[in-house]
């Protein structure tokens, strides 16, 4: 099974996707009945890339200034929305209903 399929097995998963380094949606799986379409996913991917870049800049600056290492490289970013949460690592992500989110299980699949 592909990683996207594995992500869709997570409880509450609404969509799984992967994207290019500049944020364009490359592939997706969307759960039956989920009111999410690929053009929304494409925007979500761009949000993830933008914030991954910001977080990387922050981790770099923080470590340089504080000598407190352990943030860089960024391994994941998560956005908690009003009803659902996006979790991404590298170029793959998943959208999960807020009341079902299991960060540890999701990162385990993303990092597998």
């Amino acid at each position: 099974m592909s990683k996207l399929d594995n992500l869709m097995q997570l409880d509450g998963a609404l969509a799984a996707f992967d994207f290019s380094s500049s944020g364009e949606l490359q592939d997706s799986k969307i759960a039956d009945g989920a009111e999410i379409e690929n053009d929304v996913l494409d925007m979500v991917c761009h949000v993830c890339v933008a914030n991954g870049a910001i977080a990387t800049m922050q981790a770099r600056g923080w470590e340089k200034m504080t000598q407190m290492e352990g943030f860089y490289p960024i391994q994941g970013f998560s956005l908690i929305g009003f009803e659902w949460t996006v979790i991404v690592s590298d170029s793959i992500g998943v959208i999960i209903k807020n009341d079902k989110v299991d960060y540890d299980a999701t990162y385990a699949v993303l990092e597998s």
């Binding site: 929304v40 960024i74 391994q75 956005l79």
Partner: peptide, 19 residues
């Protein structure tokens, strides 16, 4: 963009680093 897709308003975020 015309879709109330369950994302807004943002509630929070997290960034996972190495440690």
């Amino acid at each position: 963009m015309g879709r109330d897709c369950g994302c807004a308003p943002a509630q929070g975020w997290s960034v996972k680093g190495k440690d």
